[in-house]
Simulated scan of single mutants.
Amino acid sequence: MEYIKEVNINEAIIHVLDNNADEPILNEYALELDEEKYNFLLKHIQKCLKDEELKYGVFNKESNVVKDLSQEYLNGENNLLVVSKEIAKQMFSLMRSKGSIPSCDLVIVSFTTEFGPILGIFKMDYIKNYVHTIEFVDNKLGIDIISQVTGLPGSSQRIQKCAFIKPIREENNFDLMVIDKKSKSKDTEENASDYFINDFLGCSIFDNERDVTKNFVKAAEKFTQKAFAENADKAEVVRSTIKRKLREEDNIDVKKLSEEIFPENNDNKEKFVEFIAEQGISENITLDKEWIDKKLKRVRLKIDKDIDLYVDEETYHDDSRFEIQRNGDGTINMVIKHVSNYIEK
């Protein structure tokens, strides 16, 4: 996966899309990017680029407003103000036609990266904030609290829908990266629809290397829990073997891995391969090594449903500090050694 580390913002424009208005409120000027506004946008960009729900996409062959206009800008054939207005009009038209899409500010950002230029589109749904009001009543000072429903997501909050669009080139594996989260608290028409991907962006989403790697790790753990629910010894062998292969290899061959995990048990070999295939994962997997480094940096163990244990990877493999002892009956002892200090939380 392309992990973008360098982000330099060129320009940005914000438009107001209010469902209570008859027309979108379109800006006539780019934002003046002082240090505060620059950092606000930069933090949102960086947070979205690191989000594990960021997906790869390719534009559909049909003509589409966002596709056509973004490429005009990225190829130097149009300016950001004109392009952003038309993109905002397209989103507002969808909001009015579907009737269930929340009001928002639409922020269009142009920035450069180590992989080239990108046009970012951020649908910033409003956040309810509270502020105080001060007024005099009968010559006495009164202070109250009122709500504001047009606040933008803070830099510590996650944006639900955004897109990072690249110049379309034949050598590219993908045209854009997309986040399209559904609200967990509301059972609305918006949650059931894919308007952002299908109608607005006009693209198709597919799994990238990180998605495939993550799905394989989840499927392998699911199989281990199911197959060895009452045998911690065998479960530990499976998990340790898989982690070692993830660390050592760039690619995983599921059949070969199964043979290494279960050298003397053909039944488990076949069950493992079949289970991984049933989860929609191919037999040969290209691993996302950066995601693996992050994932394996810390081991979290849920022990017999009532003990949580967090151990960093180096300590987990250091027999002088942490050791797995096999009891020969399917159970294991996890021994924490030479404790010189601990705190209670």
Rank of each mutant, 00 (worst) to 15 (best):
V178E: 01
Y195N: 01
N215M: 09
I205K: 02
D207A: 14
E189Y: 09
L201T: 08
E274K: 13
I165K: 06
E264K: 15
K222N: 15
K214T: 12
N266Y: 10
E171F: 09
G202H: 02
D175G: 00
D233M: 09
E264C: 06
K181E: 13
K181V: 08
L152T: 08
K186Y: 06
I205V: 08
D233C: 07
N251T: 15
F228E: 02
K181G: 07
F228Q: 06
E230A: 12
R158I: 10
F200W: 01
C203W: 00
E259L: 09
T188H: 00
D211H: 13
E209C: 03
D180E: 05
I242W: 01
N251L: 12
D250Y: 11
L176F: 09
I197K: 09
L257R: 03
D187H: 10
K243A: 12
F228Y: 15
S185L: 12
L152I: 11
E259V: 07
F200T: 01
S155G: 04
V238S: 02
F216E: 05
K214G: 05
D207V: 06
V238N: 03
V254I: 15
K181H: 13
Q160W: 01
E189C: 06
E270L: 13
Y195M: 06
G202I: 02
I159G: 00
T150E: 14
K234A: 14
E209Y: 07
K166F: 15
S156Y: 12
S193V: 04
E171Q: 10
F275Q: 00
E209D: 14
F272K: 01
S185G: 14
S183A: 07
N172K: 08
F262V: 06
E259S: 13
E189F: 10
R247T: 14
E230P: 03
E274C: 04
D194P: 00
I165L: 10
N266P: 06
K255W: 03
S185Y: 10
I242S: 02
G202D: 03
V237M: 14
R239Y: 06
L257A: 03
G154D: 14
L246K: 02
R239T: 12
N265Y: 06
R210S: 12
K214Y: 11
F223A: 00
D175F: 00
L152H: 08
